[in-house]
Design a protein around this nucleic acid. Structure first.
Lengths: 203, 203
DNA sequence: GCTTAAATATGACTATGGTCATTAATGACC
DNA sequence: GGTCATTAATGACCATAGTCATATTTAAGC
């Protein structure tokens, strides 16, 4: 890595680190770009060489977070457990990972909208935000397919619909948890709902 | 209604109408408050006497929309149909109502988050945004309870969990539909997922 | 119909996210 | 180790959401 690249990475990390701290301390809205650049010892314009908007910092935070999750993921999926357990483990793993950083996650959730909109303009950025959800759904579908092959899951179930339903349950639990002010875990709530999707509610 | 109140209502309606048109024409971000007030023939400050932020216009739009929906709702729920049909009708009704105004709904969806945050500061505004979701869930729970009494739904099902799961499915379908650029209806997608929740996927 | 307090409207002003033409640093090449 | 094209840093500048002290309008009491 050249001096140039090294410095660049350092600056990016520096901005990221400092803004993360400030966001946690004072909230997203109450932290100004001027403040961030001042603490980082760079000019304001430099900030925007690294991140196109203030909000994109949150996206970057999420990318980093999801990178971590996908890395842990491999080991979980490779086991020999029943499909249902794997699915539960998968979703609960995601849940737990988010539970670790509720403050920043909330900001991400409540602010990421403009990014989605903005990236909608740029074709090559369209994946961001929604793209990883599709990735999650795709993993769920693979796990469900295993379940069908193992005879754990009805053959006639439409796997796309089913995986989306599971993702819906996951996402909804996450949302409810973020809106709540209590420090309750949402893994348990999620777990109950997954059971329900497996068993069905009809008599 | 006094002259004062009448004028006030007129101004509020005028702002609302004009901004709705502009948002649809040019998008939310590309419409400035200056433009709105200019077209409405009022001073900039006046705008903020009626709506605390530009984004709160979207909240107001939603309140109006949901008022409508809740009004239609009563008739649907009072019928003698099976609980499952009622639930489907309820959610599909919501879905169809939103389908009518995808453009503004998308803006609402992508912009409303900050409102939730902002209103989180003010205790008496905390309900906005999240509150109606709880209302939806509550209606679903009542319908499910009927279903249990009619023997359509397993007795041992936790109604809170079940109603939240149905709401999750509804919300998720809505989200996927909003992210998609196609003009597909999401009522059908939703319908399939409700069936799935009733039947369960486990063998 | 005058007076006056309360409600409402106003627009100059502020704060802040984001732009861009200019300047400085880097490293490939000779 | 000097030259120069490429890349990155800079900060004055702009656009726009939102504020607030002041001016205007309303309507109640007399």
């Amino acid at each position: 890595m050249s001096l140039r690249e090294k410095k660049k990475q350092e600056t990016r990390d520096r901005i990221f680190e400092i803004s993360g701290r400030l966001f946690r301390e004072k909230g997203f809205e109450n932290t100004t770009v001027d403040e961030i650049t001042q603490e980082a010892g760079i000019a304001k314009g430099t900030f925007f060489n690294y991140f196109p908007t203030k909000e994109s910092l949150l996206l970057y935070f999420r990318e980093r977070k999801e990178e971590l999750v996908f890395n842990i993921l491999g080991s979980q999926i490779a086991t020999n457990a029943p499909a249902k357990d794997k699915i539960k483990n998968f979703l609960v793993l995601l849940a737990e990972n988010y539970e670790k950083d509720k403050v920043l996650l909330r900001m991400l959730f409540f602010e990421h909208r403009r990014l989605v909109m903005a990236s909608g303009q740029h074709p090559d950025r369209k994946q961001h935000g929604h793209g990883n959800q599709l990735r999650f759904i795709s993993i769920l579908r693979d796990l469900l397919k295993e379940g069908v092959e193992n005879g754990e899951i009805k053959e006639r179930v439409d796997l796309q619909i089913a995986s989306e339903t599971l993702h819906a349950v996951y996402f909804h639990s996450l949302m409810m948890w973020m809106h709540s002010d209590t420090d309750d875990s949402f893994s348990r709530d999620l777990s109950a709902k997954i059971d329900l999707v497996f068993e069905g509610i009809g008599e």
